[in-house]
Lab assay of single mutants.
Amino acid sequence: NKSRCTICSKLAEIRHEVSVNNVTHKLCSNHCFNKYRLAN
């Protein structure tokens, strides 16, 4: 079950899903999750 990561755009296994204003951001790693948190 692979999806495209919101941060790095890599097609990968999604580890984190963050839902903001009915938009789901898919994040493939802790690294991308941290980058997402810093950016938002």
Rank of each mutant, 00 (worst) to 15 (best):
N22H: 09
N30G: 13
S29R: 01
C28A: 00
V18N: 06
A12F: 03
N30E: 15
N30V: 11
C32W: 00
R15T: 10
T6Q: 09
K2P: 02
V18E: 08
H16V: 02
L11Q: 11
F33E: 08
S19Q: 12
S19Y: 05
I14A: 14
V18A: 07
F33I: 06
N34C: 03
K26R: 14
H31Q: 11
S29T: 03
I7C: 08
C8S: 00
C8G: 00
N40G: 07
N30M: 13
C5F: 00
E17D: 10
K35D: 04
T24G: 07
I14K: 02
E13K: 05
N21C: 06
N40K: 13
R15P: 10
Y36A: 15
E13R: 05
H25C: 07
H16Y: 03
V23M: 06
S19V: 12
K2H: 03
C28F: 00
C32R: 01
S9P: 01
C5Y: 07
N34D: 10
L11A: 07
V23H: 09
N22I: 03
E13W: 04
R15A: 12
T6K: 03
H31A: 14
I7R: 06
F33A: 12
N21A: 14
E17W: 03
H31R: 14
R15S: 10
H25D: 13
L38N: 08
V20R: 09
H31E: 15
N22P: 02
L11T: 10
L27A: 05
Y36W: 15
A12E: 05
S9Y: 09
C32S: 01
K10M: 06
E13V: 09
L11N: 10
L11G: 06
R15C: 08
R4F: 04
L11M: 12
N40V: 05
H25R: 07
C32T: 01
K10G: 06
T6Y: 04
L27P: 02
S9M: 12
K2M: 08
A12L: 05
H16L: 03
K26S: 11
N34T: 12
K2I: 10
L38W: 08
L11I: 07
S9R: 12
N1H: 02
S19C: 09
L27C: 02
A12V: 07
F33P: 02
E17L: 05
R37W: 04
K35R: 14
K35F: 05
S3Q: 11
N30R: 09
L38V: 15
K35G: 06
T24P: 08
R15W: 10
N30Q: 14
L27H: 00
S19L: 06
N22Q: 15
N30H: 08
R4W: 06
C5L: 00
T6L: 11
K35I: 04
K2N: 09
N34G: 11
F33C: 04
L27K: 02
A12W: 01
K26D: 02
C32L: 01
T24Y: 05
F33W: 14
S29P: 02
N40L: 05
K2W: 07
S19A: 11
T24M: 09
A12S: 10
K10E: 09
A12R: 10
H16F: 01
L38I: 12
C28M: 00
L38G: 15
R15G: 07
N34W: 08
K26Q: 10
S9H: 10
K26W: 08
I14Q: 04
K26I: 06
N1T: 15
L11P: 08
L11Y: 04
C5G: 00
N21T: 09
V18W: 06
Y36M: 14
V20F: 14
S19M: 10
C8V: 00
L38K: 14
V20T: 09
R4A: 11
H31W: 09
R37T: 14
K26A: 14
I7N: 04
H31L: 12
I14E: 05
K2E: 03
S29A: 05
C28P: 01
H16T: 05
C8H: 00
N22V: 03
R37K: 03
K26H: 15
I7L: 09
Y36P: 05
A12G: 06
Y36H: 01
R37P: 04
C8R: 00
S19P: 06
R4G: 07
C28E: 01
N21E: 12
R4K: 14
E17A: 07
E17F: 07
V18K: 04
K2S: 03
C5W: 00
S29G: 09
S29E: 04
K35C: 05
E17R: 07
H16A: 04
K26M: 15
C28D: 00
V18G: 04
R37S: 13
E13D: 11
K35S: 09
K10A: 10
N34S: 14
N21Q: 11
C8T: 00
K10L: 05
I7E: 13
A12Q: 10
S19G: 07
L11V: 15
R4D: 04
V23G: 12
S29Q: 02
V20E: 12
R15F: 05
C8K: 00
E13I: 05
I14C: 10
I7P: 01
T6H: 05
C8L: 00
K10D: 07
N22M: 06
